[in-house]
Amino acid sequence: MRRKPYQTVLLYAAVIFATLVIAFPFVWLLITALKPYPEIYGFPINYIPREPTWEHFQYVFQLDFGTYFKNSVIVSGGAAILTVLVALLPAYATVKFDFLAKQPILISILICQMFPQIVFVIPFFMILSKLGLIDTYLGVIVSYLPFTTPIGVWLTRNFFAEVPVDIEEAAMIDGCSRFQTFRRIALPIALPGIAAVGIYAFLFSWSELMFSRSYLSTMSLQTIPVFLSLFVGQYQTRWGPLFAGSVVASIPPIIVFGFLQKYFIRGLTSGSVKG
């Protein structure tokens, strides 16, 4: 299909317009974070900072932002690892075997998509309190699993489905046990899918607010979203550091997702294509 010149111009105009509009809220956040206070509250608005400054970034790191960042890395990394561990085996089993429990397991994945987080917030609060895990990394990590694992199983299934049966059979003829076949043959091939699952869990945990805010009351354990949300409440007018913190908080997920979006989109959508 060949386009006429005016169609190409229209297409680019539409794409560039859409990109500018969509990027704007984030770009504006960044621009504001670089403005000194008189310019943040300036009238009329400066669209380009006259005297850009790092003072808000310096200030937010004085408020122990490094600690919150570290906590977020621990919680999100932990959730990613646990999710992968729980999701791998059922994903493989339901792809490679035809057995009675297969359908119920697949339905359970679908049903888990419907659960509102709010249903879990009070029971987990009580359970974690009883176990003494309420104000700990582990408690928060575990509370994320019901939301990351089902999608994890779904994503991994699509990648295991691409592992050719012939290779696995050949491996078993050569004397590999069923589990060795899984570990040595299927797992390496499905690695991009496993990465996609880990990333999903990481991103979910990185921005999760409801559980982390309710369970983590010790400041030195709180994650970035908790810190930012408390900041919104406490210092309503201190926009500068809030924006600086927000920009820094967005960097890891944007980088991670930017690099791995290909695998992620493939895993997420291939299941619905195949039905």
Binding site: T19, A23, S207, L209, S250, P253, I254, F257, G258, Q261
Partner: peptide, 12 residues
């Protein structure tokens, strides 16, 4: 278009 809004944390 696809990454920036979706990857930005909710609170941000």
């Amino acid at each position: 278009i696809l990454v920036l809004p979706w990857a930005t944390p909710d609170i941000v």
